[in-house]
Design a protein around this nucleic acid. Structure first.
Lengths: 145, 145
DNA sequence: ATCCTACGATGGACACAGTCCAAGTCAAGA
DNA sequence: TCTTGACTTGGACTGTGTCCATCGTAGGAT
């Protein structure tokens, strides 16, 4: 993660203790925390950090391309530090667990020209949904049914 | 739309003037209104209709499978009456215009088994993004860039 | 090492989407 | 027409996110 911090500093990102903690909280694979979860974890190390600061730092990391926003439900945005490898998301309909996944081929290519309505299509977000093994075993009802 | 109302009544949906207006407001193709927009349009015909009633009616229409919720941004859910023909969405990054689109093939099939992490994958939502012809002509900057 | 200052942090108010509830109203069957 | 359980209402409430004036500090200049 320190390479990330170095990279950001090289781009003129002023390195404060708050920003450092936010960046460190987001380290790892299959990390998809909400802003409040980031705030709670950051506050364990820096108790006085404010929500506004966390929102600011997350917004800047997104603008710098180091973190991507994920909106798998419409409750709270989640922040995914896996920004340098294109991927999609698989979400458990029972417990909300999120995994990064990589479908075959180019997801943009399957949209026929006749279905593009003249748009300059540049991006695609895919959310696969289903029950994770634990929820399937527990017989959790799929809330989407 | 009256066939929808008949269908709902046949399923025991008590037909009130409020519910009728909500269902009528949602009639049409490429309709993707927010709850507040539905409320505003319904109120033009039934000025005393409350927000809570609109939310209730929309939730019931979704539960009955007659309307699908669409979350293309994380601001407000949108309600799409095109529930009986599977489709995905194309969203303008400039103005938010939404079109229903139909990609080639089965979108679920492109997720390799090894990328399913044991999930019972049952559904997929795809959002294509780009500039619509009007925004492209206007040179609107893509806010996602 | 110290000083300066522009940039960042703070927290409280605010905005918006959506939910909940007790009380009043009404659709539709008897 | 009557009755009743389901529906509607408006307002309070929650959660997520933004804004702003004020205070604090990172890091370059000296």
């Amino acid at each position: 993660m320190s390479d990330l911090l170095e990279r950001l500093r090289g781009r003129g990102w002023r390195l404060t203790s708050q920003r450092r903690v936010v960046a460190e909280v987001l380290d790892g694979d299959h990390v998809h925390l909400t802003a409040d979860e980031v705030h709670a974890r950051a506050a364990r190390r820096l108790p006085e950090i404010s929500r506004a600061t966390v929102y600011n730092a997350l917004g800047e990391l997104v603008a710098l391309g180091e973190v991507v926003e994920v909106s798998t439900d419409c409750r709270a945005k989640r922040y995914d530090p896996n920004a340098h490898h294109p991927h999609q998301h698989l979400v458990c309909s029972g417990c909300g667990l999120i995994r990064d996944v990589h479908p075959y081929g180019d997801p943009l290519a399957v949209l026929p020209a006749a279905e593009r309505f003249g748009f300059a299509v540049s991006d695609v977000e895919i959310t696969y949904r289903g029950l994770c093994p634990a929820c399937a075993r527990a017989g959790a009802p799929d809330p989407l049914d």
